[in-house]
Design a protein around this nucleic acid. Structure first.
Length: 567
RNA sequence: UGACCUAUGGUGUAACGGUAGCACAAGAGAUUUUGGUUCUCUCGGUCUAGGUUCGAAUCCUGGUAGGUCAACCA
C-alpha cells in the first residue's frame, strides 16, 4: 500500500498538496476507517469552465488516488436559475475530461424530503422559526460586518405555531416572498452567516426534477452540507469563499445530529487574459461578444474542447498548477505549454499556407508532378509517412519572403537559397510585383534537381526550411486564428470605473483562407494537426463536405517573432 | 470598531525547526530538412519589525498588504 503510493507520487513527480496531506493524516488516524469519498457539486445554472476542471480533477483525482469514490451531485436548490440543458452539458464535460461517477449521480433535490425533516427537527428544538419579515426588512436587520443585527420579532413564535406555519408554507398557502424559515442562532455573531440565516423560501416554481411537488425550496447553505452528510462524503472540498460558511454547516450538522464530513477550502483558479465567473461568461454569450458557450475563445470546457484542447492536456494542467489557499492567477502560457506538449507527440504534421504567395520554379518541367515523402510525426515513427505532391508552382507563406531582409532572416530573399521541406533546395532569382500596389505577386526561383529530399546532395546546409503547397493540388480551407479574449492580464482588476468588457480584444478572432496539402481531405471533426511551422489546429464542427474549417489551438513557439519584436 | 483566510523568483508551487528546490515565463548556447521538438546553461525569491532557538520561509507577537463575508443566489 505504502509502496504503491510512493510509486505514484514518483510517477507524477510532485509533492503532496495540503489537501492530500490532510487526507493522508486522516487515513493514518483511522478517520472514517480510512475511507475517502469526495464529490463534485455543481449548480446546473451554466456551463463548466477551466476553473471547474481544476475542482473536477481534484475531487475525482483524490477519489482515484486513495482508492475511494467520487460522486457527481447537482446542487439544484434554485429552480428559477437551473435547467436540464446545463445538467446535460455538465455531465458531458465531466465525462469528456475522463472521469466516471459510476452509479453515483445525485441531486440535492433527491434530498428535499430529508431536508424538510431536518428543518422540522430544528423547529422542534426551537432552533428555527418562521419569519414574516420582507426580504428588505431581513436585510436591514441583519446589521453589517462591523455592526450587530437585530432579532426578528417573529423569533419568539412557539414551536407549535412554527410547525403549523412551516407546513402551510409547504402546502402552498402563502405567496412567494411572504415568509421564510430561519435558523435561530445569533444576530450579534461576528460571522454574518450565523445571523439567523434563511433556511427555506417560498418559490412557486417548476423544478426540473421535482416538477411542481414543492413550492418551498431549501437555501444552498441548508442543503449543501447536509447533502454531503447524507452521501457520507469524507472530505468536502470547496473554494475559499465558503470558509466563513463552515461554522454554519457545522452548526446544522451538530443540531440535527448527523454525520459530519470534513470541509477543506482551496483557492479557485484564475487564468490571465480571461474571466472566470459564470455571470461574466453568460454576459459575453448574451451580448454576442462570442458566438456561444463553446466559442473557442471561451475558458469553458466546451470552448476549450472545440478549440482543440485535449482532456489529457487539461488534466495535466490541473496537476501542474497545484492546490493551495492563496489567491492565484495562472499565466495562460502554462495552459498553452500543456497543450503543445501533448499535441507535439500526438498530432500529425501537415503543410498549410495561411497567407499564400506564389513561387514559380522556372527550371522545373511544366507538367511534372512528383510525390514527395514526408514524415507524419517526427516524435512518433509509428505514425508513418505520407505523399505530398510537388509541381512547378507552389505557394509559400508571404512572411517567408523578404526583399530586403535583416541579418537574422533565414528564409527566402533575392539570391538566397532555402529548402522546401521534403522537396528541393530552391534559389530566388527575381520578383514580380503589382505595378500599382507594389505587392509581390510572384517569386521566381530555380530549383536544384540534385537536392531532392533523400538524395545525397540534399544534405547541403541551408539556413532555412519552408513549408509549401503545390498550387494545383492545394485544398482551400477556412482557418480561424484566435488570440486572447482580453487585452488585460486581469480584466477583473478594474480601475477608474472600467469593467472587464472594456478590455475585450477586438482582434481575438482572425479568419483566413488557407491552402493545405491534399492529405488534409481525410480530416475529421475535432482531429488535431500540426500545420508545419505555424501551430496546432483542430477541425471545427462548422466544417462541411466542401469546406474544412480549422481552429488554431495554439501557435508554435516562435523565437523569430521575438527577434522581430526587439527590432 | 468586526470575523475568517492568505503572504516564498515575473507566474504558480515545494521545502513539515537543519543546504530555499521544481515547473512555466524570460535570456544565452548546442542539435535540428519545423526559427518546432530535444539538450545544456543563465537570470531571479522567503512582505515587514521584533521575539523564541545552536539554528526560522517554517514557531510566537505586532505591523503591512491582499482576499472573503452584509441574496428569500450558489
Amino acid at each position: 500500500m505504502e509502496e504503491i503510493k510512493i510509486a505514484e507520487d514518483e510517477k507524477t513527480n510532485r509533492a503532496l498538496n495540503f489537501i492530500e496531506d490532510i487526507i493522508e493524516e486522516d487515513i493514518r488516524n483511522g478517520v472514517n476507517e480510512g475511507r475517502v469519498h469526495t464529490r463534485f457539486p455543481p449548480e446546473p445554472n451554466g456551463y463548466l469552465h477551466i476553473g471547474h476542471a481544476k475542482s473536477i480533477c481534484l475531487n475525482f483525482g483524490l477519489g482515484n488516488k486513495y482508492n475511494g469514490k467520487t460522486n457527481l451531485r447537482f446542487d439544484d436548490t434554485n429552480p428559477v436559475k437551473e435547467d436540464v440543458e446545463y445538467v446535460e452539458s455538465i455531465m458531458e464535460d465531466v465525462k469528456w475530461l475522463g472521469f466516471d461517477w459510476q452509479d453515483r449521480l445525485f441531486y440535492a433535490s433527491d434530498y428535499f424530503d430529508q431536508l424538510y425533516e431536518y428543518a422540522i427537527i430544528l423547529i422542534k428544538k426551537g432552533k428555527a422559526y418562521v419569519c414574516d419579515m420582507t426580504a428588505e426588512e431581513i436585510s436591514e436587520t441583519r446589521g453589517t460586518p462591523t455592526r450587530p443585527g437585530k432579532e426578528s420579532p417573529f423569533r419568539i413564535r412557539s414551536v407549535e405555531e412554527n410547525l403549523d406555519l412551516f407546513s402551510r408554507m409547504r402546502a402552498g398557502e402563502f405567496p412567494d416572498g411572504t415568509r421564510v424559515l430561519r435558523a435561530n442562532i445569533d444576530m450579534t455573531s461576528p460571522n454574518m452567516h450565523m445571523r439567523d440565516p434563511v433556511l427555506y423560501r417560498i418559490l412557486h416554481a417548476y423544478h426540473h426534477r421535482t416538477e411542481n411537488r414543492w413550492c418551498i425550496y431549501p437555501m444552498y447553505d441548508f442543503a449543501h452540507g447536509q447533502s454531503d452528510s447524507i452521501e457520507h462524503i469524507t472530505h468536502s472540498i470547496c473554494t475559499l469563499e465558503f470558509e466563513v460558511h463552515r461554522p454554519l454547516y457545522d452548526w446544522f450538522i451538530r443540531e440535527i445530529g448527523i454525520y459530519a464530513p470534513r470541509q477543506i477550502e482551496f483557492a479557485r483558479l484564475n487564468v490571465t487574459y480571461t474571466v472566470m465567473s459564470k455571470r461574466k461568461l453568460l454576459e459575453l454569450v448574451r451580448e454576442g461578444n462570442v458566438s456561444g458557450w463553446d466559442d473557442p475563445r471561451m475558458p469553458t470546457i466546451c470552448g476549450l474542447r472545440r478549440r482543440g484542447y485535449t482532456p489529457e492536456s487539461i488534466r495535466n494542467f490541473a496537476d501542474i498548477i497545484g492546490v493551495a489557499k492563496r489567491d492565484n492567477i495562472i499565466d495562460v502560457s502554462l495552459l498553452e505549454f500543456c497543450i503543445r506538449e501533448d499535441l507535439n507527440n500526438r498530432a500529425n504534421r501537415l503543410m498549410a499556407v495561411l497567407d499564400p504567395v506564389k513561387v514559380i520554379l522556372d527550371n522545373y518541367p511544366e507538367d511534372l508532378v512528383e510525390e514527395m515523402e514526408s514524415v507524419n510525426n517526427p516524435e512518433d515513427e509509428s505514425k508513418g509517412k505520407r505523399k505530398v505532391p510537388f509541381s512547378k508552382t507552389v505557394f509559400i507563406e508571404r512572411d517567408d519572403f523578404m526583399e530586403d531582409p535583416p541579418n537574422k532572416f533565414f528564409r527566402l530573399s533575392p539570391g538566397r537559397e532555402v529548402r522546401l521541406k521534403a522537396a528541393y533546395i530552391i534559389k530566388c532569382e527575381s520578383v514580380a510585383k503589382d505595378p500599382k500596389t507594389g505587392k509581390i505577386e510572384e517569386i521566381h526561383c530555380t530549383y536544384d534537381p540534385t537536392t531532392k529530399s533523400g538524395m545525397p546532395e540534399s544534405n547541403r546546409k541551408v539556413k532555412g526550411t519552408l513549408h509549401w503547397v503545390s498550387a494545383k493540388h492545394a485544398v482551400a480551407a477556412e482557418v480561424r486564428l484566435y488570440d486572447r479574449l482580453f487585452l488585460k492580464e486581469n480584466p477583473d482588476e478594474n480601475e477608474l470605473g472600467a469593467t472587464y468588457k472594456d478590455f475585450l480584444n477586438p482582434n481575438s478572432l482572425n479568419i483566413v483562407s488557407a491552402l493545405i496539402e491534399p492529405a488534409v481531405k481525410a480530416a475529421q471533426i475535432l482531429e488535431k494537426y500540426q500545420f508545419e511551422r505555424t501551430g496546432y489546429f483542430s477541425v471545427d464542427k462548422d466544417s462541411t463536405t466542401n469546406m474544412l474549417v480549422f481552429n488554431r489551438v495554439v501557435p508554435l513557439k516562435d523565437s523569430w517573432s521575438k527577434v522581430e519584436k526587439v527590432k
